[in-house]
Amino acid sequence: MNLLYVADPLEHFKIYKDTTFAMMREAQRRGHRIAACEPCDLHWQRGGVVQARVRWIELSGGGPEWFTETTLETAALKDFDGVLMRKDPPFDAEFIYATHLLEQAEREGAHVFNRPAALRDHPEKLAIMEWPQFIAPTLVTRSAQEIRRFHDEHRDIILKPLDGMGGMGIFRVQADGLNLGSIIETLNKGGAQTVMVQRYLPEIVDGDKRVLVIGGKPVPYCLARVPQGNDIRGNLAAGARGEARPLTAADRATAEAMGPTLAPRGLLLIGLDIIGTHITEINVTSPTCFQEITEQSGCDVAALFQDALEAAIKAF
C-alpha cells in the first residue's frame, strides 16, 4: 500500500515517543510505502483534484537522521491507498480549512483517516456533550455570571479554554474562590470566548487515563498520566508521569459503549481521557501514547492500529 501521512514537520518529531512515527514504522515493517506532507502542502485548483507536495521517505533507524527522503513530488491524494490526518492541535481555522480540502479529496476517491467531517464534528472538549452519562458536572459558557453560579454550586472547579492542548490554560479554583474573577477574564476575554468548566475530580491524583479505541474496540491497556508535585494537570507535556495499566472494567465498559457509535462515523482512532470513571475529553485529531503503552505493557498498539487501517482500506 501507498500511505500518506499529513502531519507536522518530520524534522520536529520526537521519535522516542511520537505516535505517528510508530505508525510509520509499523507500516514500513509490513512493506508499505510511506509519504508525508504538511497541511500547508495541500492544494486544489478548478479542473483538477486535491494534490500535495509529498516527501517519499524510508525510515532508517533512530537518532536525528531517522528517515531518508527518496523522492519529492506532487501527487493526487486519491492515488494513495490511505491518507492519515495526523496534524497535532491546535484545532484552529487552518486545521478546519485542511479538513475541507481533505473532504474534497474524499469526493474524488481518497480514503482519509480519521474522516475530515468527523474531525470537524467532534471538537475534542465539546464532543463529550453527546455522552452526559459518562461525564462529571460540566458547564460550557461565555458568561462570567454562569461560571460564578457553577462555582457556588460545586465549590471546587476546573476551568479551561476550548482550544487548549497539553494542559495549557487549565486553572483550578477551590472553595475560597481565589482569583476566580481574574481567571474568568483571562479565559473568556470579556465574554468573547467560550470556556469549559467542570467539577474538580479528586481522582486525578491517580492519573488522567488515555484509553485508546481503534476501529471501535478498546486497546487492552491505557496510559495513566499522573500529575507530579503541586501540578494538577494530567498531561505528559505538563510533566505528568505516564504509567501503562490494564483497563479497568469500568473503563472498558465506557469504551465499548462509545466505540461502536463513533467508529462508523469515520473515527478509526480515538483517545478517551478518563479521570476516575468520568470522561473529560474525546481526542480525535492525533491521539497519542502508542509507544508509552507498548514499551511498558508489551501490547503492540501500532500493530493493532495498522491491522484496523488495512481492514478499513480494504472495506472501501
Rank of each mutant, 00 (worst) to 15 (best):
L139S: 10
L126W: 10
R142P: 00
I183P: 03
K209A: 08
G191V: 11
A118R: 09
L159M: 14
P123D: 03
D176S: 13
R107P: 02
S182R: 14
H100M: 06
A175C: 07
Q145S: 15
R86C: 01
H100W: 04
V173M: 09
Q145P: 01
V83H: 06
A117T: 12
V140I: 14
A118C: 09
G216E: 12
G177D: 08
L187E: 01
E185Y: 11
A136P: 11
G191K: 10
L84D: 02
L126Q: 13
I214A: 04
G166R: 06
A93K: 11
F171I: 05
L102T: 01
D156Y: 13
N179Q: 14
A192Y: 11
E203H: 12
D208S: 00
D206K: 09
V213C: 04
R148D: 04
V112N: 00
L180A: 10
V83Q: 03
Q198E: 12
Q133Y: 03
P132H: 05
W131C: 04
D176F: 11
K87G: 09
I184Y: 05
F171Y: 15
R107D: 11
L126G: 09
K189W: 10
P202A: 06
A118P: 09
D152S: 15
S143Y: 04
T186I: 13
F134K: 00
T194A: 14
A105E: 00
G215V: 03
A110N: 01
I214F: 04
Y200P: 09
E185W: 06
Q193R: 15
S182P: 04
D208F: 03
K125P: 06
Q133R: 10
G190T: 11
K160C: 02
H122D: 03
A117R: 15
L212R: 05
S182L: 14
I128H: 00
F134R: 02
D156H: 15
A110L: 04
E185S: 15
H100E: 04
E124Q: 03
D208M: 01
L180G: 06
L187V: 05
Q133V: 02
M129C: 13
V112A: 00
